[in-house]
Design a protein around this nucleic acid. Structure first.
Lengths: 111, 111
DNA sequence: ATTCATCGCTACAATTTCGATAGCAAGAGT
DNA sequence: ACTCTTGCTATCGAAATTGTAGCGATGAAT
């Protein structure tokens, strides 16, 4: 089977492709900001701390090719069913983030 | 509380810090390659498709600061308990990757 | 003690990517 | 036609990544 257009990691294992896709700036953030509702490109930009449209557009193109995000006429960008499935699989990390901030934050940064 | 040294996303929410940490090239890959056993810096490099030691070292420093990875004398790099907890929270995405390759691969790439 | 291999790690230049700003073409409403 | 918003592109300086070479330290064998 042909490989998705992801950089490096030519092992063919899906996890590598996924690791590569989400291991880019703003990719995860974009998915995260779309978790509740569809956002127009500008609303999304605002949600992402006014990140430059250059990168945002590049990431959105990648996410659309990956079928995690789609552009709906009159609504803006939204998660596809597959995208929502991804988000669901990602959620445990949201919970971990809190425990991590609690544990690591206590010892590394000032408490 | 002082913020972890993560780029951007000054919201203070742990998830943003985590999103930012793992949204960098090779970060997730490194954690992934350490999932089973400790690896020396060179073994890790080999596992990561001979990625340049410059980035690897930078990511390892970040991961050590985040207390997800530690350097053990005579063993090399290994996941900390917190790192293993992270990996556990990440595992659902491993399962998703397969479904994703199945679903998206069928429509985007040749099938 | 000297050789040798391996370890974690760094220097450096070239390339790639990102960031910030400005602006375009298309569509809807007036 | 005018205005406003939307998705998207252009440009260029700044920053990150890549690729290669090599450092000092450590441990084992001679």
């Amino acid at each position: 089977m042909a490989e998705r257009s992801v950089r490096g990691s030519r092992t063919g294992r899906p996890i590598m492709a996924l690791l590569d896709l989400i291991g880019r700036r703003w990719t995860l953030r974009i998915v995260w900001e779309l978790r509740e509702a569809a956002l127009t490109s500008r609303a999304l930009r605002a949600a992402c701390d006014e990140a430059s449209p250059t990168v945002l557009q590049a990431r959105l193109t990648e996410l659309r090719a990956a079928e995690l995000v789609e552009l709906r006429k009159g609504e803006g960008y939204a998660l596809t069913p597959l995208g929502r499935e991804f988000l669901q699989a990602f959620m445990p990390l949201y919970g971990f983030a809190d425990r991590w901030a609690e544990a690591a934050g206590r010892t590394t940064t000032a408490g």
